[in-house]
Amino acid sequence: MNKTEAHGFKDWASVISGAIFALLVSAMATTTVSAALPGEDSDVWSLRKESGDIHIYTMRQSDSSFQAFKAEALIDAPIESIMAVMQNPASCMEWLLNCTESYAVGKGNFHERYVYSVNDLPWPVTDRDYVLSVHTQGSKASGEIVMQMSAVPEMRAEVSNRVRVDLSNTRYRLIPENGKTRMIWLQHTDPKGALPGWLVNTLLVDIPVSSLEELERVASKERYQGFSLIYDESGQLVDVRQTSGN
């Protein structure tokens, strides 16, 4: 491969990585443009890549030219630190590829909130932006936390120099495991525009690997230490709060 071809391939990889991401956390919201994510345990998932403790699977979607992916990873960070990252809307810029802008919008609480984020894509591809409904649920009995999000594009006016993504569903299931966190990440996103499905699907497996490796690094930062999960009397997760000074 000559330098020109290599450079062109790298630019396309950057385009795809930015376009398919929809930022952090949730429990699935239903919208008129969203389709349900495939089942986590479906036997249709196809293993595409293994990288250390990270396994990536993909699945064709009958109503889309873009595949869904499932990433399973054992992250060397406690679930409290992972949740501290996830609950910070601006953390998208720390660990998700090409996320250059992210903040909370509208009214919300711990269980249901909204986030606006932007993926910066190289010229001449137009940047993508998202408005996401984020839902969080957790049980003290099981120790698991489920975070799901889906696109709610109508919640904020579109920006003239960005393409609004109106179909994106993501689910994170977080499971504490001996001081580490097992994360199962399902996602299906249609980035809209002229990005060909075959190219997105070819590069899809590398995107969650890079992000999960970065999530592990970010979760180890000092500002995400000393957090605790707060449960109500019925054992339902109600907050993630810093309880020791850092």
Rank of each mutant, 00 (worst) to 15 (best):
Y103P: 11
R182C: 01
R128N: 08
V159E: 11
S211G: 09
L204H: 03
I82D: 05
E222Y: 13
N98Q: 13
F69Q: 02
R162A: 13
S220T: 11
E72H: 08
S26V: 11
W198C: 06
V238F: 03
M1K: 14
N109R: 00
W185F: 09
Y114S: 07
F110R: 06
L96T: 06
D53T: 10
Q137G: 02
R156S: 02
S64I: 10
D190Q: 04
S65K: 15
K192V: 13
N169Y: 07
L167N: 14
L199P: 07
E213T: 01
V115L: 04
G39W: 08
I54L: 14
V163Q: 11
K107L: 00
A194D: 12
H111E: 09
L229T: 01
G52E: 09
F110T: 03
A36M: 15
R182W: 02
D43M: 04
E112H: 10
G18L: 10
R113V: 04
L195R: 04
K70Y: 06
F21C: 10
P78I: 07
Y231L: 04
I230L: 14
D41G: 12
N178F: 13
V44F: 13
A141T: 10
M93G: 10
R241S: 10
V209C: 08
H188T: 07
W95H: 02
T126H: 01
G108D: 07
T30W: 04
G106N: 02
A27F: 08
G52T: 05
E222M: 15
M1W: 14
Y130N: 13
N246S: 15
S102C: 03
P176F: 03
A104T: 10
G39H: 04
D11L: 15
R164S: 13
A35Y: 05
V240Y: 00
Y114H: 15
W123P: 11
A194R: 07
A29I: 00
T170W: 07
V200E: 04
E177Q: 12
V200S: 07
A35W: 14
I20R: 12
S62Y: 04
P78K: 06
L174A: 00
V25A: 12
W123D: 06
A36S: 15
I145L: 07
P124Y: 02
S26G: 14
W12A: 15
G193Q: 10
S234M: 04
L167H: 08
E80S: 06
V146P: 11
K49I: 02
I230D: 04
H7N: 02
V200L: 05
S65F: 08
N109I: 02
V238W: 02
L195M: 14
R217I: 05
T243N: 11
L215Q: 07
Q187V: 03
G197R: 08
S210P: 00
L24C: 09
S102T: 08
W185D: 03
M59P: 02
H111T: 08
V118Y: 01
S244M: 15
D129K: 09
F110K: 03
P153I: 07
S81E: 06
V163R: 13
T189V: 11
I82H: 00
V125E: 12
A35V: 09
G108H: 00
V165C: 15
S244V: 13
V159A: 11
V118C: 14
R156W: 12
